[in-house]
Amino acid sequence: MPDSNIEGGAYNYAYLDEQTKRMIRRAILKAVAVPGYQVPFGGREMPLPYGWGTGGIQVTAAIIGRDDILKVIDQGADDTTNAVSIRRFFAKVADVATTTSTEEATIIQTRHRVPETPLREGQIIVFQVPIPEPLRMLEPRETETRTLHALSEYGVMQVSLYESIARFGRIAKTYNYPVMVNDRYIMSPSPIPKFDNPKLDRSPALQLYGAGREKRIYAVPPYTPVKSLDFDDHPFEVESWTECCALCGSRESFLDEMIVDDAGKRMFICSDTDWCERRR
């Protein structure tokens, strides 16, 4: 594979060496074969810090090719600093076309949101994941959570939802809302707002999840059932706003709140910048 030169040094295509890419792809294949199961992988140090998307970057680096069109978003926007930084990185090391259009993209790397525009078959969405283990806050020990997943012992998760209702009258989890994938594994969908959870269910696109610091990859193949956990008499609900987007008028999208003056006046604007622009 031809090398791309970065600032004088010579790096392999898409930064990672071929051995590493092969290792990551094997992990991805395993993950796709067992939807929702966290596959350990030998994560590498990347030029961005842990916690800033190294897992997503490694997954993208392992699958990207010159024909791909890459979109990178953070909090739904293409122009936030983290998205800009990662997009620049791949433009440089992978010599690849980039876009802000969800429709045009073949690979979408995202932090904390799923685009409003429905994804299609053939697209891959790569999620940046900080804590891949959905049971982590209930059980700090990795040795124990591994066993719980293996034995499908998910009572502790349901207990935490019960407790939330007992305390708040509702399930108060708002982002990183746990889901059951393919009726077998409980998965963390990454810190997307629960608003986005329904988009994961039977999506035509391939979902890949990368956690660099924790060194786990997991996946949801296209058209796989993804169900948000709930109770029969407290069914899963998404957020809603009374306002609509101040720029495009949308009532269907996730809205960001902007404080526009010292008096605390607020405005609501689509979090998904591409979606919002297309409507205007």
């Binding site: 998910y154 349901q158 019960y162 407790e163 109770f231």
Partner: peptide
């Protein structure tokens, strides 16, 4: 760290009970 209700309900939830009112 969880309520008495959650403590008692856990075994039920572990084998699939999913109606909060009934569990309670």
């Amino acid at each position: 760290g969880v309520s008495a209700g959650a403590n008692i309900g856990e075994r039920l939830m572990a084998v699939g009970a999913r109606h909060y009112g009934d569990i309670r």
